[in-house]
Design a protein around this nucleic acid. Structure first.
Length: 309
DNA sequence: CGCCAGGCAACGG
DNA sequence: CCGTTGCCTGGC
């Protein structure tokens, strides 16, 4: 049990308090709120945290963390409380934009996800939106996961890789995954066949691990960077989606003009080469915690656009 | 009906 | 190298 106020981005706007922990909902998709508690799927675990009490005098909430099956201190691991956010913020003191965002959105954090669940989740993220990704993953879990009852609600574990491997393309498609079913299937085949190992990926450096992910059809630059950042300890990864591209266009154009006058950065849609170039520039600019910078920019752009999630 | 949504890959110039 | 196109699906 830790003291402080925690919040998912889905509840931050309802609070007048400065949250201790905030998480972008674009990172992880299987969290749901019932009453005062949040429930999330972490592979074969259901994680839960709830606001137990409020000490109104000093605005402190007491948060209770639970899990089933038992996953001791999951909040430490999943919310990356082992990362020293104050130390990380010192990497951005010279950056006018980021130093302000770190103050404005104090407490925004990365979430550490299960690598295999993260791979499948982002394989589903291609050319669609968060609501649809959620729907696909919920359908997959209902169909191929195991039911766990908690507090009178039904939850489902994330399907095992073996179960997905045994599923037909049609069965995967029936979960609303569409053309992404092939990618899910090929990930499952590679892992079950032993040619792809999440432990191995975690051990490799950023470039090496990324190259392996890119060899999977259906996984491109952006999805690979998300998997690397959110589940494989590559905090230097800097995923560029449409929101991040907008932020770069708004705040960092001079950076590109100075370094790469040839880069024609008029469109938010990036070619593979433009992506690689921008990503490299940003990783060099922000350093080994570029992924944190990415999260702050992302959160800010979504916040500006009044996105609920 | 067309268009879009937090991408990707195949293809032609 | 670049630009274009189609893709499952649901919401507007």
């Amino acid at each position: 049990m830790i003291e402080g106020y925690t919040s998912n981005s889905r509840v931050w706007s309802r609070s007048r308090l400065n949250p201790v922990i905030t998480v972008n909902s674009g990172q992880t998709f299987l969290w749901e709120k019932y009453k005062n508690s949040w429930y999330g799927t972490y592979n074969d675990h259901i994680l839960k945290f709830s606001l137990e009490e409020i000490y109104s005098k000093n605005n402190k909430y007491v948060i209770n963390f639970e899990s089933f099956p038992r996953f001791n201190n999951w909040e430490q691991f999943v919310f990356r409380l082992d990362d020293d956010i104050n130390h990380i913020s010192t990497f951005f003191t010279e950056d006018i934009v980021l130093s302000q965002l770190f103050k404005k959105y104090a407490g925004l954090r990365l979430m550490r996800q299960d690598p295999y669940q993260c791979m499948i989740s982002f394989a589903c993220s291609s050319n669609t939106n968060i609501a649809m990704i959620r729907r696909m993953l919920v359908n997959l879990s209902r169909k191929f996961g195991s039911r766990i009852q908690m507090d009178g609600n039904n939850f489902f574990t994330f399907p095992t890789i073996k179960r997905l491997h045994n599923a037909s393309i049609n069965e995967l498609c029936s979960c609303g995954t569409g053309f992404r079913a092939k990618t899910i299937k090929s990930i499952a085949e590679k892992i079950v066949g032993g040619s792809l190992s999440t432990d191995e990926l975690r051990g490799f450096g950023y470039s090496e691990a990324k190259e392996i992910l890119l060899s999977i059809s259906g996984i491109g630059n952006k999805i690979a960077d998300c998997i690397l950042l959110f589940s494989l300890e590559k905090t230097e990864a800097f995923p560029i989606d449409i929101w991040i591209a907008r932020s770069l266009y708004s705040y960092y154009r001079t950076l590109f003009n100075e370094q790469t006058p040839k880069l024609n950065f008029k469109s938010i849609k990036l070619t593979v080469n433009q992506y690689n170039l921008l990503s490299k520039i940003m990783r060099e600019h922000f350093g080994k915690y570029a992924g944190y910078a990415q999260q702050y920019l992302y959160y800010h752009m979504r916040h500006q656009a009044n996105k609920k999630w």
